[in-house]
Amino acid sequence: MKTLVICSGGLDSVSLAHKVAAEHELVGLLSFDYGQRHKKELDFAAACAKRLKVPHRIIDIGAIGRALSGSALTDNVDVPDGHYAEETMRITVVPNRNAIMLAIAFGVAAAENADAVAVAVHGGDHFIYPDCRPGFIDAFQTMQQHALDGYADIKLLAPYVNISKADIVTDGAKHGTPFAETWSCYKGGERHCGRCGTCVERREAFHLAGIEDPTVYEDHDYWLEAVRKGPGPQGG
């Protein structure tokens, strides 16, 4: 199955790219510049494409991103520290981001005669990101069947949607994902900060998976405090 992977350069999407390369026919990686405060992760997506020997395309939707204001990922708003399962992390929501990216990806896939689009949403995202939940994935597939009826039949692959990030680490290791060549931190510094929600989740995931974390964090142990304060890991 010829599959196009949406790849941000983060741990989840790079692991997905390696999984798809092993299990299907990976035809390319698609990344989006939506005006995020730093674009460092896009370099990791480009490196992943080079490693897997597939084309990499970055689509500029910055004008759209500027209209989706109010998120800590796009505006000059402080990225909160702590666990993803805390209410404060809602400031990292970019409204309708996945719906917009997926709609574009399906158009690209149809134009290029691909059979599927793969996205790395996972169970840990369900709490604060409505466009990462199983109901959204199912509804989006139905919508695209109508949108492309008679033109293309493209499947939406979301193999991580009901599993935890720790499970993704396990699966990524199985498929040889070079975790050190992925970027998660929302603050975009020289090293992972170790304190923002995505750093805490990343650090916790390696711990729960029992796999050595090669990431260098500015604050290596903050995740322990964040997990104690938060309601615990989310997802399956």
Rank of each mutant, 00 (worst) to 15 (best):
K2H: 10
L4G: 14
L11G: 06
L16G: 06
A17V: 01
E23D: 13
L30P: 02
D33L: 04
D33Y: 07
G35Q: 02
Q36R: 09
A46Q: 10
R51P: 00
K53R: 13
K53L: 09
V54A: 07
H56Q: 11
G62Q: 08
A63W: 00
R66W: 06
L68A: 07
G70W: 12
A72F: 03
D81G: 04
G82Q: 03
H83A: 04
Y84M: 10
A85N: 13
A85D: 11
R90F: 11
N96I: 05
M101V: 05
L102Y: 14
F106M: 09
G107R: 03
A110W: 08
A110P: 00
D115G: 14
A116E: 03
A118V: 06
D125I: 05
C132M: 11
Q141M: 11
Q141L: 12
T142F: 06
Q144C: 10
Q145W: 15
Q145I: 07
A147G: 03
A147Y: 06
D149G: 08
G150R: 05
Y151H: 14
N162D: 15
A166M: 13
A166K: 07
I168C: 13
P178E: 14
E181S: 13
S184K: 10
K187R: 10
K187Y: 00
G188P: 15
E204K: 08
A209W: 15
G210E: 05
P214Q: 03
E218D: 15
H220Y: 09
E225R: 02
G230I: 00
P233Y: 14
